[in-house]
């Protein structure tokens, strides 16, 4: 059941612009920078940030896609190794920003960090998150945060993006 609508299209857009400027402020060598979007919605967020970067600053950022399913810590069988990613063939000496929609327990991000290290030793890994809903189970925090939303563990936070959901919004379901 819908409890609340947290963000609409303009607000999401505004946040992404701010996050882009935060990245712009913190980094110098944009050739070394690589945005890694986590499947599914992190991929679209990372593409949007790269697009804003190009429009605002004329800088083309590298983006890549990563599916961390095989790196989850709750898989029953380790035999099923299957990984898919795009444009991540080397992370050696690169500054990486992991992009995802919602930060909850932190376990997905832990898997993503493990996956990235399998492709080489990066110079630095940072985290960009649209919604932080609390309830962390690992010592992980976002470097670039869209919005902190206190939630109860019974609630669900849904980020919906035009690319696959036909609408831009963030809602809380109960």
């Amino acid at each position: 059941m819908l409890k609340a609508k947290i963000l609409n299209e303009q607000e999401i857009n505004k946040i992404l612009h701010r996050l882009m400027y935060e990245i712009y402020e913190n980094h110098k060598d944009f050739d070394k920078l690589l945005l890694v979007g986590l499947w599914t919605r992190g991929v679209f967020l990372s593409r949007r940030i790269a697009e804003i970067f190009l429009n605002e600053k004329g800088i083309r950022l590298d983006t890549s896609e990563l599916d961390v399913t095989p790196y989850r810590d709750d898989l029953y069988t380790k035999e099923k190794i299957a990984l898919k990613t795009t444009n991540l063939i080397s992370t050696r000496e690169r500054s990486i920003i992991i992009v995802d929609d919602v930060l909850f327990t932190g376990r997905t991000i832990r898997g993503a960090i493990e996956a990235i290290f399998d492709f080489g030793r990066p110079k630095k890994i940072e985290l960009l998150i649209l919604i932080d809903r609390g309830h962390r189970e690992l010592p992980i925090n976002a470097n670039y945060l869209g919005r902190f939303v206190p939630t109860s563990s019974k609630e669900d936070v849904n980020v919906r993006l035009k690319e696959i959901d036909n609408v831009d919004e963030v809602i809380i379901l109960e």
Binding site: S64, E79, I81, A82, T85, I89
Partner: peptide, 15 residues
């Protein structure tokens, strides 16, 4: 382990 890599840099790791 086996790897499949496409021209567009998509990488798949399987068996």
């Amino acid at each position: 382990k086996a790897m499949l890599l496409l021209e567009d840099k998509s990488l798949f790791i399987g068996r």
